[in-house]
Design a protein around this nucleic acid. Structure first.
Lengths: 199, 199
DNA sequence: CACGCAGCCTAACGGGCGTTTGGCATCTGT
DNA sequence: ACAGATGCCAAACGCCCGTTAGGCTGCGTG
């Protein structure tokens, strides 16, 4: 009963993340998963209690990664634009460093049992609130335009950093930092050239 | 064998769109779908040939909507910033007017058979190319900043308009046009106030 | 050497899946 | 009134699902 973290369990979670992200949770059978690890379906149950435990754990780990990345930024004293840039850096890094579990997180959370489901929606809300507060503070600081709607602005920023899970490929020419800087530059400075600035 | 479009078939596709978007394709059984329409599982097969036909048709209809909305814009003579705004208007309207099938489109296309899968990735590429070309032209026109990377800019715009399927709620206070204008304003003009403009 | 215990196997369980079949009503046109 | 098509039901098909049970193997420790 000594539940010291065992490597085999971690292997199972890694395979599950990959398969769930590629095929989806319901389209991946326990036998598929076992086969990916070179074992028989039933053998998995020596290490885990069931299929949903895998999904819950993958989603929880992803949630925790986002939490740790963003909420240590909350009470730092950076100007709002720099803080936003840093938040995007961290956010995209979490996505990029955990492509599989991030994909599972974004796609499969609807299939969780009610308690785990509620935890995820709560997390989602708190991330929304983090960005909204950052933007609201930036407006009152005068760093951001006064006519911004914090909610819409937060949606725009979240779109940029979250959608990356659909197209980013680790090992390609772009580092997560490149992506974050590029997005932050465009968002903060706008797409238009200096000529003809009025909307 | 006269395959005039019958209303019952459309009802089945509507129900399937809703259920697939809420629960996912693999988590929705044919008996679930039939129950939603007040019939027995086997009765569906008088109207359709199988489950995958439903998915293919939902995805095809969604693809066609995006195609028609965007490619009629291709050869118009608007300045790049206005064209981008109009494209975002149309793109978000398609998402907002077809929340269910758009959700299925974004989530379940991986589960298609190889031919349908290839068609979707082809569509994806052509939408990417549409936005990249729009931006490239805007740069050479001088409307957009010269230091933009068209690929990254296209990703940013696509993030904004596509991610809307996760949070937009038809019938709420925001019309699709409100969302598109808000996003276009922020993207084109940037988030920063006039004070302190250099990055 | 004997022991115990991981770690995996094979086999099976009940149940739900997508799909097929055959039959029974109800309506339409002649 | 009759023929045929239409739309649905009830039942069954073979298959695969998640999960459980019991037994075999091989290693580390006394």
């Amino acid at each position: 009963m000594t539940e010291t973290a065992k490597p085999r369990r971690a292997q199972i979670l890694d395979s599950a993340s990959r398969l769930f992200s590629e095929r989806g949770y319901h389209a991946t059978s326990m036998r598929d998963l076992a086969g990916d690890l070179g074992m028989q379906g039933g053998s998995l149950y020596a290490h885990i209690s069931g299929k949903e435990e895998l999904l819950i754990e993958i989603v929880n780990v992803a949630s925790r990664q986002f939490d740790e990345a963003l909420f240590t930024l909350r009470d730092t004293d950076l100007p709002a634009d720099e803080k936003l840039r840093e938040a995007m850096h961290r956010h995209i890094r979490v996505v990029a460093d955990n492509m599989d579990s991030a994909t599972v997180f974004f796609h499969e959370w609807k299939h969780l049992s009610p308690e785990a489901y509620a935890r995820v929606t709560g997390w989602r809300d708190s991330i929304d609130a983090f960005y909204r507060e950052l933007i609201t503070r930036g407006i009152s600081e005068g760093t951001f335009r006064a006519d911004l709607d914090p909610r819409m602005t937060a949606y725009l920023v979240l779109s940029a950093v979250n959608w990356a899970y659909t197209w980013y490929r680790p090992g390609g020419p772009l580092t997560p930092g490149d992506v974050a800087d590029s997005f932050a530059d465009m968002l903060l400075g706008g797409l238009r050239s200096e000529i003809g600035s009025t909307a």
